[in-house]
Design a binder for these strands. Structure first.
Lengths: 154, 154
DNA sequence: TAATGACAGTCCTTTTTGTAACTAACAACC
DNA sequence: GGTTGTTAGTTACAAAAAGGACTGTCATTA
């Protein structure tokens, strides 16, 4: 029963995650001045096409206040448009504009390239281990690919 | 060339890291009202015994301003003592007091238990994959176990 | 021993985040 | 059709993080 920081799961995860995130942030910050919530909303909307802020939050694992602020920022850039749902006027549908989609594509390419550059330093075996580890942890932590628990526990 | 958030390495890492960290934070926050920098300094000092703020920062991968504030907070609780190095009066040696070591031990147990509880949900194979993945990523990202680059690049 | 540059640690200012309260809209129930 | 409870999204406030500038100390060199 020994706790050494450098062997402690959360510490290691955090350091790795932060290192990777920082590389990415440099890209979307430098090119378009985006912060992470904004980038995530952009990516989420590219994934989801047309959806509400709540859905975007679920899909990108972000609190609704972050989403709200990010949506506002992206709207100001005219990268997305809102449209209140006539059926339920509380919620608004969000869609990327052409400019938004263009910005997303311009960002996706270098971000993926950077991801690939990191993974390229790993052996095939290590890459497999990474995939297996991430999937296993996601399951163990009840984090499904798009943010909802795998099946609702009673 | 497809960027889907749920398959994107930094996103997955971040979500996992955050989920695990949150579980831990609940423990050291609830029991002793610590925040992460404070907990990390405590753990680093438990690892290192007697060392300077700079060393603690390197060992726990934290910016010196965070370390500075955390040291102040822990000092106020009388969990650590400072001692300016007579050889170099810029730096101060930090050591945990008995109370500090006691608090550390009281925290280490439940934190390790929580870590174990998470890992217990994984198969042996998955656990191995996690270990292999973390090590491989640490290497690929030039993050050595205690925060210094593996060997200084020219 | 003055000048330059590096380093340890702190302080101060600006962003970002998290939390909780709030508004508006809906739904269910009586 | 009023009451109660829930949900979508925003706003306002408080806590935390990030970053840079600053102070004091040391080392090097002239």
């Amino acid at each position: 029963m020994e706790l050494t920081l450098s062997h402690f799961l959360p510490y290691r995860l955090n350091r790795i995650s932060e290192a990777v995130s920082n590389e990415m942030r440099a890209i979307y910050k430098q090119r378009h001045g985006l912060n992470r919530p904004e980038w995530r909303v952009l990516a989420a909307l590219a994934d989801l096409e047309r959806s509400t802020a709540t859905e975007v939050g679920a899909h990108s694992t972000q609190h609704k206040t972050k989403v709200s602020r990010a949506v506002f920022a992206l709207e100001k850039r005219r990268w997305l448009k809102r449209q209140t749902d006539p059926q339920d006027r509380r919620s608004e549908y969000l869609t990327l504009t052409d400019a938004g989609r263009k910005a997303y594509r311009e960002l996706a390419a270098p971000l993926l390239a950077r991801e690939e550059r990191i993974l390229a330093r790993l052996s095939d075996q290590d890459r497999n281990a990474v995939e297996q580890a991430l999937s296993a942890l996601e399951t163990a932590l009840d984090i499904t690919p798009d943010g909802a628990p795998p099946d609702a526990p009673a």
